[in-house]
Simulated scan of single mutants.
Amino acid sequence: MLSGQNRMRSSADFSTTVRSGARSGRRNLVLYAAPAPQRPTVFGFIVSKAVGNAVTRNLVKRRLREIAALSLAEHPEGLAVVVRALPAAATADFAGLGSDYRKAFSAAVARLRPARRLEEAGTEKGPDE
């Protein structure tokens, strides 16, 4: 389960991550990941009424939270992640949802790596300074 420090709660955080993050879509979900330097990794979930009734939406959210908690071991800090469930997530089983999440997460993080290297290179001082 995700702890309180790893949950995204502010709508501004959701907006920033979705607008500036690397996007990766799959059949059941769309994942956005943005760098959040020197902060614990945070996850936010968007599950609209298009996914289904309240029972179905909550089931999808619980599954996504559990899957996200497993990926927290790989990236304990430095990321802001928003997962938007698509209507197909309502009929997906745990394994299918997990597979889509892992593929989308890997692709989004891979897209962020070049940006992280540029940020790190820009903060290092050259021999002339």
Results as ranks from 00 to 15, higher is better:
L72K: 01
Q38Y: 13
F105A: 04
P37Y: 15
R9P: 05
P35Y: 06
L86I: 03
A110E: 15
R117F: 08
E124H: 09
L112M: 14
T91F: 12
K49R: 15
A73T: 13
A12Y: 06
P114E: 02
A108Y: 00
L2S: 10
L2N: 12
Q38P: 03
R84P: 03
K49I: 06
R65W: 01
N6D: 12
G96F: 10
S11E: 15
E77N: 06
R113H: 03
I46A: 05
E74K: 13
R57N: 04
L79R: 01
A89R: 01
S71E: 14
R62Y: 09
S24K: 02
R19D: 08
S99V: 05
N6G: 07
R65F: 08
R27W: 07
R7D: 01
Q5T: 13
S71V: 09
L118G: 09
V109W: 00
A69W: 12
A33L: 01
E120C: 11
Y101L: 11
M8A: 05
H75C: 04
E129T: 09
E119Q: 09
K125F: 15
E124I: 15
Q5S: 13
F94Q: 11
A80R: 12
S24Q: 00
V82N: 01
S99D: 09
D13E: 14
A88F: 07
A80Q: 13
P40D: 10
P127G: 05
L97N: 03
A88D: 12
V81E: 01
D100V: 00
A22T: 06
M1I: 15
N53L: 01
R26H: 14
A85N: 06
T17Q: 07
D93H: 06
L64E: 01
P87R: 02
R26F: 09
V109M: 04
V83E: 05
R39C: 14
S48G: 11
L79P: 02
V55E: 03
V109L: 05
R7A: 00
S99C: 08
G4Y: 05
R9N: 08
R84W: 04
R23M: 11
R84S: 01
E119H: 05
G122Q: 14
S99F: 07
R63N: 08
A88S: 14
A88Y: 07
E120A: 13
D93C: 02
R63G: 04
A92C: 01
F43E: 02
